[in-house]
Amino acid sequence: MYVFIIMMWLLILAGGGILVVVVSKISISGYGNEIDFLIASLIKAVIAILLVIAWIIVLSKLKNKIFQKQIES
């Protein structure tokens, strides 16, 4: 259980890193300031949601790997 909690914590830190380093840098230009901001926000929101889904899938795989014995019992 401690290993699983550490894994979750590291995944949170890594997810934060991706959000800050990659996603927050996304900017759009050429459609006017407001539309640019809206499109960039939408893209960031979609990527953030995809990251959360990826986080859940990775956790699910880890759960099956770490707790396989207990779940089967």
Partner: peptide, 15 residues
């Protein structure tokens, strides 16, 4: 702003 350890804040006012 959502602030992450080590990497800092990400500006997401609408989100």
């Amino acid at each position: 702003n959502l602030t992450f350890p080590i990497f800092g804040p990400v500006k997401i006012p609408a989100l």
